[in-house]
């Protein structure tokens, strides 16, 4: 086996991949609270939101080499988290096919009627309209920031925001 500077080739490979992993962890960890907050706004469950962050990290790790521009890492990661949340929401719909929303206790608080109404309304919305509404009102993002995350022109985001609020109003 070839030796370089006191280490085997396989040891060097292992160190290099460990360094890569630590760098990746640091990049995600820097944003972990933001990712969790976004997941929580969709799922409103601590365990499901942690699961979403875990799954998003998993998918991001697998696809990390496809990301050409490191400057968009955060937007890219947020998009993956949103996709994971939507997958979970669809799974919940399949497990609980009735449209009725059951009141459940979250961190010891009862769900308010407003919460129930909003959740029901969001569930009926087209997902492409839901995301700009959530990212603006729940996370204070600008149209430009939302456009980066969803990979759409800013004009499209403004249209979707307008349509989303219209739909939400109709369902509330």
């Amino acid at each position: 086996m070839e030796k370089t500077a006191g280490h085997t080739e396989s040891e060097n490979k292992e160190r290099s991949s460990h360094v890569q992993e630590e760098m990746f962890f640091a990049q995600v960890a820097e944003r972990q609270r933001k990712l969790y907050s976004i997941a929580y706004s969709y799922l409103r469950s601590e365990s499901d939101s942690l699961e979403a962050v875990q799954e998003a990290t998993c998918r991001a790790w697998i696809k990390r080499k496809k990301l050409k521009n490191p400057d968009v890492f955060e937007s890219w990661l947020i998009r993956i988290v949103i996709n994971c949340c939507m997958d979970e929401l669809r799974r919940r719909k399949r497990s609980f096919p009735t449209a009725e929303f059951e009141e459940r206790a979250v961190t010891g608080e009862m769900q308010s009627h407003d919460r129930i109404d909003l959740e029901r309304a969001f569930g009926k919305m087209k997902s492409k309209y839901r995301h700009p509404v959530m990212l603006k009102y729940y996370h204070g993002m600008t149209s430009a920031q939302i456009a980066d995350i969803l990979g759409k022109p800013e004009g499209t985001i403004k249209t979707w925001l307008r349509e989303g609020l219209k739909q939400l109003k109709g369902f509330l």
């Binding site: 995600v28 972990q32 706004s41 939101s49 942690l50 990290t57 991001a60 790790w61 961190t107």
Partner: peptide, 18 residues
């Protein structure tokens, strides 16, 4: 509500994801 989660739990989730 989202602030209730601890940093350690979040970091663990990220590690497990990797």
């Amino acid at each position: 509500e989202s602030r209730h989660i601890g940093g350690t739990e979040l970091s663990d989730a990220v590690r497990q994801g990797i």
